[in-house]
Design a protein around this nucleic acid. Structure first.
Lengths: 219, 219
DNA sequence: GAGCGGAACATACTCACGGTACGTACTCTC
DNA sequence: GAGAGTACGTACCGTGAGTATGTTCCGCTC
């Protein structure tokens, strides 16, 4: 009884827009684009695949042809946003030579990227729980955190001491600016909040710079 | 207990421990306890209510009598952990007078609390996505962040200047130690990682302390 | 101490949604 | 032009959150 021999499908035929060109289909891109919007608007759990395929004007069969699971779809969406953001920031900081000025530039670029609502929601809010802590930490390490570590290493080299503390510094700074980005996004006056953040980070960096040496074992 | 008319339920009968005492039942506590374990082990989405009620040896009817939804159950679990952690940290820092030493003490207490697996998973990893960004931010503000702000305000008072930057400093420090706690948890050698974190935070605080004045408007 | 009202559950169901099974249409290659 | 592989479409299933509807027990009143 399944599959009546004679398939009507007349309505669907009319709906077809991409004339089934060869090679890589636009269907996958349509799914990614619409999934990005929906995930950003309603979160991972709040978005049903029926909504996604309806928005992309295809069916679940098409979706599961391109992605093995809902989580894999989310992962693709996540990676696209993540790599795009990392590339943007990288271009900005590569244009600056002085390590201390580069840190400020990187901070500014990161804060700007985090104001992008889709990036905020998907990469900062939904991804940790959706992908799981392990998978998310790995993705962050290979993207954002490595950028921060590059910057921090140059700072520490400019100072004396601090051997072996680069990763620790990077983790702390990354957490700080990640939290700062949320603060800016939620502020009533984002521009004011951003300038305050830059001021405070600037003070912290200035304080570190004023130390003649790092690395004194604590109590 | 359960309908002796014809109903077997012999297993459940033997399992009842609290003899249906008056007023507040132990059922709610059993649900909260088991839900805490399961949410911590499998996350919010990965835990089914059937598992919860089976572990608590009750039925969904009992659960929905005490909690209006799965999210409300999670919220209760979250709040219990959150307030308990805040109370622990508060006691630790209230025993210290010097503001700079108190900051270090608070950091150490926070890092310890974050090593508790249930707190980590539920309050730090699952809660943001499960409760939603808005609700989670509010809970954090009223619990952890207010503690940090109290500490930071004393630091700024000890220094000169920095008027109106207390909240900004608190946000940045809170993000830093939140990220630091993850770093410590994931480290192969948590004790070493924790000491490195304390070292770096100590250096940052020392740097700030060495500044004669804060609050210089940036570019 | 009989009756009554509500709290504290249990049972059985609905429905949304992720995932699967299996089909067909189009294209390319030989 | 026949076979194979890609790119879908359709119908179905299982799980799990939430609901409707009981039923039992306790405390209170008269």
């Amino acid at each position: 009884m399944t599959h009546p021999k004679v398939r009507p499908a007349s309505v669907l035929r009319a709906a077809r827009k991409t004339p089934r060109r060869s090679g890589h289909s636009g269907t996958k891109r349509a799914l990614l684009d619409n999934a990005t919007e929906l995930f950003a608007a309603h979160g991972y759990a709040g978005t049903s695949l029926d909504e996604v395929v309806a928005a992309a004007r295809v069916t679940k069969g098409a979706l599961y042809h391109h992605f093995p699971s809902k989580l894999a779809l989310f992962e693709s969406v996540f990676e696209r946003l993540q790599t795009g953001a990392a590339r943007t920031i990288e271009q900005r900081i590569d244009a600056v030579d002085d390590p201390w000025e580069r840190a400020q530039t990187g901070l500014r670029a990161f804060l700007e990227v985090c104001q992008e609502p889709r990036f905020r929601r998907i990469c900062l809010q939904e991804a940790p729980a959706a992908l799981g802590h392990e998978r998310f930490a790995e993705a962050e390490r290979s993207a954002s955190l490595s950028l921060v570590e590059r910057i921090v290493d140059d700072l520490l080299a400019d100072l004396g001491g601090g051997e072996g503390l680069g990763e620790t510094f990077a983790v702390i700074f990354y957490g700080a600016i990640r939290s700062a980005s949320e603060y800016v996004s939620d502020a009533e006056d984002p521009d004011l909040a951003a300038s305050q953040i830059e001021q405070v980070i600037g003070a912290i960096l200035a304080g570190l710079r004023s130390l003649e040496q790092l690395a004194a074992p604590a109590s």
